[in-house]
């Protein structure tokens, strides 16, 4: 039982990270980036390929993360450019349709060029015992990294001037501009951050189980569910929703079986939307 909850927590932290990467982009400019999971998988492929080419794990991971950030930035400054001329729901809809297209292109390229690639990061340390539960070193390192990144994110958004500027654009774009905040610059930053989070997510995933090439769509959906349950645009909500969904996921896949788990998660998300469209933690930023 404790072990299952621990697994859930590790997974939940990772889900949270994944969700934050999607939710900040949505909160910023009403962009629902459905290519997000595929971009994260590109990071995984870069890590895996560069490690096979002889690069150390550390630099390979960094390279992967930077690639994801780069793709994310490119997306913002190319395909999504025309989207910013639309407003409100039109903007979300067009961004959603265009990024589905981008996801298809990325997935297609990956399946074509790297059909059997999968990223596994082996953390070769001995398992560690925590309150009588033997935890794999990979899981521990993954949660440590996730916690660290999560903590830094909270610090960034709460305590730094730039972080506050980001939240200001999420809460009231006109107000932010009147305060001298340049929304385009903030958007660039956020897209880079989103890519970085996607990259960190796949790296931590790969420490517990291999990340296959085909995982992009699933990652996107997971991120979407986490985001929706947490409240679109809410950073704190994404983290909490990630934790909840992670624990639910671990519990139900242990006690019930995997396909029902997925259905339960989906139903939970659908129910949240229907009952509380602003999310469980329906407060932004």
């Amino acid at each position: 039982m404790t072990a299952v909850i621990f697994d859930g927590l590790v997974l939940g932290l990772q889900f949270g990270l994944l969700g934050v990467g999607l939710t900040v982009v949505y909160g910023m400019g009403g962009i629902l980036n459905l290519a997000y999971g595929s971009i994260a998988v590109v990071a995984a492929v870069v890590m895996s390929v560069s490690m096979r080419a002889g690069l150390q794990a550390g630099p390979a991971v960094v390279l992967g993360i930077l690639t994801a950030a780069g793709i994310s930035l490119t997306l913002n400054s190319t395909v999504l450019k025309p989207v910013y001329r639309r407003r409100g729901e039109d903007r979300v809809l067009l961004s959603l349709l265009l990024t589905i297209g981008v996801a298809f292109i990325i997935d297609g390229l990956l399946v074509w060029r790297f059909p059997i690639e999968a990223l596994g990061l082996n953390v070769g340390w001995e398992p560690v015992s925590i309150i009588g539960v033997r935890m794999r070193a990979g899981s521990l390192l993954a949660s440590a990294i996730t916690l660290l990144v999560g903590g830094s994110l909270i610090f960034f958004f709460r305590a730094t001037t730039t972080g506050k500027a980001v939240r200001s654009v999420i809460q009231d774009e006109v107000g932010a501009r009147l305060c001298g905040v340049n929304p385009a610059a903030v958007r660039t930053l956020i897209f880079a951050l989103s890519g970085v989070l996607g990259g960190i997510f796949v790296a931590t995933q790969a420490m517990t189980s291999p990340v296959p090439i085909s995982a992009g769509f699933e990652f996107t959906i997971t991120a979407l569910l986490v985001t929706v349950v947490g409240g679109l645009g809410s950073i704190r909500g994404a983290f909490l929703a990630g934790l909840i969904l992670g624990i639910v996921n671990a519990m139900s896949s242990f006690y019930i079986g995997s396909y029902i788990t997925t259905i339960i998660l989906l139903a939970a998300a659908a129910l949240t939307i229907v009952l509380r469209p602003s999310g469980l933690f329906g407060e932004r930023a």
């Binding site: 506050k164 500027a165 009231d172 932010a176 009147l178 905040v181 932004r284 930023a285």
Partner: peptide
């Protein structure tokens, strides 16, 4: 502006801090 465009979920202090941005 007449609609004020404050940041509703930020504290008074944070709103003021953003006034000084960058």
């Amino acid at each position: 502006p007449a609609e004020r465009h404050l940041f509703p979920e930020m504290s008074v202090a944070e709103n003021l801090a953003l006034g000084a941005f960058p």
